[in-house]
Design a protein around this nucleic acid. Structure first.
Lengths: 195, 195, 195, 195
DNA sequence: GATGAATGAGAGTTCATTCAT
DNA sequence: AATGAATGAACTCTCATTCAT
């Protein structure tokens, strides 16, 4: 496996450039040449590693979501009380968002119809995430840590709370540390905003 | 003001067609000719009413958001207790989503970078909605109907709860009536999911 | 049917340009823009009339062969003695070649593998021509105007005699009138070169 | 002169591969990499032996025509009566065609304009062949073995008879032995098809 | 006002050729 | 000598926009 001076596979260099350019200009406004320039290589070289623009985008999405899920999974602590577990998940989500602003924009929001197949894939990913959360919530309900709420709705509430924070965190550069925010949001979700 | 047989301005006919086509295929996959066909007019005629594709998209977004805000505002009942008021807002949001599937996708989600100027505009719209909600929440806190929560976070929680429901409502054609769903979600938001 | 000042359909103007350029530079060395320039129109206009470069080439071949067959058929005189009939066919072929130098090169010789489908089509055309000739020869044999030769071989001999004359006629600009040449060739084919 | 295990110069290995690939896919549809793969070497290595794709094609054509002429010349028997000599030439041509299907297609037919220089060269080769035949015919006329025909036309008739057989021989895999076919065709050419 | 034929800038992709290893 | 990763010129095709009718 050939690696360059920085120890990166060239396909990773390309994907890094792709994340950067796609996320700031969107799929359709990005020209392959821009990605090549950002990667410091020639236009044709991209095609040595990826079959097409769409396929590059797809590969980038896959690697990105993989990174996201890795972060979420390595952070997750099953044995903790639900409140703490939720805090960890929120914190993982928020710090991932902050550390990977480019990626985050694409992962949570870029649902422009690029391609029918990609759309299906994106929805499936979403559904998958929802179900993972739901399983965690069901477990907590069974353990008596949560009320007997509709777990489907609850998981959506959690997902919504994660995603809605993207804009303030990324675009306004919220100062608040990810963990503090996570604690606050988790508290709101658990206790609600009512008296 | 010239109107055709159905009493519609031609520019409205064009925007209706634009909503239909843009929302099902996305901005970049939509060709001006498709909109013209959907509107039952000639391709060149669109340019009599809109300067460019981008400007048509913007006009469509404006009219659509106007409709959304109208719905939200005419539904809002300031004098009601917060829980009821929230229910009404949720219900307005959910039923609007269901009634305007095409529109909804674009309004809530289509933040793909179509154009730098449009991006700014989209974010400003979001910010505006957030602040309207925040004002309502601040008021409720002052009236003692809500805990002394961070109203910024609370408004985001509400927005997130609205938006996250888009997918299940639209894509899976949830059977549950908008009002029932609104009551359930409002309850979750108010009481939280904790014991 | 829109026609321009010279009374030509635009698709015909394009095909004329295509014949000109394709035949002098070959399929692969011809750029669509060159055809457009030769036709005095914009590059994109070609695509209003033909789906692709290949499809334009195909259309050109069809129209060209049609013209060739028309010439051959309108010239053919069934009721004449075989020798005269053959002379007419040769003459039609030679004068067509001379009058349509560009076309001729493509029709008789351009067998470069452009496309698998096109190759099949070309072979089928060839086969068809061979069979038409064979039918004429069979008839002449039955009428006793020819020896009991293998009509398949005889038709190939005639085809070969036609095609082989392309180079001298076109490339060297043979002075000899088409009819005189036809008489000579027909005589060779009928009497042979032996004593 | 370096030769590999099988006693072949590497440039010959490359030309063999070139014949194979060029003739089945045509010049423009052949990629240098395919030739390299067929030759079992690296893409860059071809450029150690040939300056360019065009130059390789030319070299391949030269070697191929050389082989063709060798076959024709070693077969030719000046001292034989013309009829027999002609039979030998036809047989050499037909059996060469059958044994070198790939080559044959290119040699007789591939006059597509690959390159202006190559076109000239190809025409010169053709002219040369025609003149060799013409000399043989002139000789036979002088010896009284043939009628006082126009030897130019007669040589073209013979060339045409050779070339036109390519398709049936190669594409339809004619069963008839090359020699039998040669005898038949020679007879047609000598006696003609007339009564 | 309404139209749609015409346009050409611009984008994705291919592949002969180079050159560092 | 041999290689194949890298390159970028060149080519086809799309589609927003124009403008003569």
């Amino acid at each position: 496996m050939r690696r360059n001076v920085r120890g990166l596979r060239k396909s990773d260099v390309i994907i890094d450039a792709a994340v950067q350019v796609f996320s700031s200009k969107g799929y359709h406004n990005t020209r392959m040449e821009e990605i090549a320039i950002a990667a410091g290589i020639g236009k044709g070289t991209i095609y040595e590693y990826f079959e097409s623009k769409l396929q590059l985008f797809q590969a980038m999405m896959e690697r990105s979501l993989q990174a996201y899920y890795n972060k979420m999974e390595t952070t997750d602590r099953q044995q903790l009380p639900f409140r703490d577990r939720l805090c960890h998940l929120f914190e993982a989500h928020f710090s991932f968002s902050r550390e990977n602003k480019d990626l985050a924009r694409i992962i949570y929001w870029d649902t422009d119809v690029i391609d029918e197949e990609l759309k299906e894939w994106g929805l499936a990913m979403r559904k998958d995430k929802e179900e993972r959360l739901r399983a965690i919530i069901d477990e907590a309900i069974n353990r008596g840590e949560l009320r007997q709420v509709d777990s489907r709705l609850a998981s959506l509430l959690v997902m919504g709370s994660m995603e809605v924070m993207y804009m303030p965190i990324i675009l306004e550069d919220w100062e608040v540390p990810a963990y503090d925010l996570a604690v606050e949001v988790a508290d709101l979700v658990l206790r609600g905003i009512g008296v």
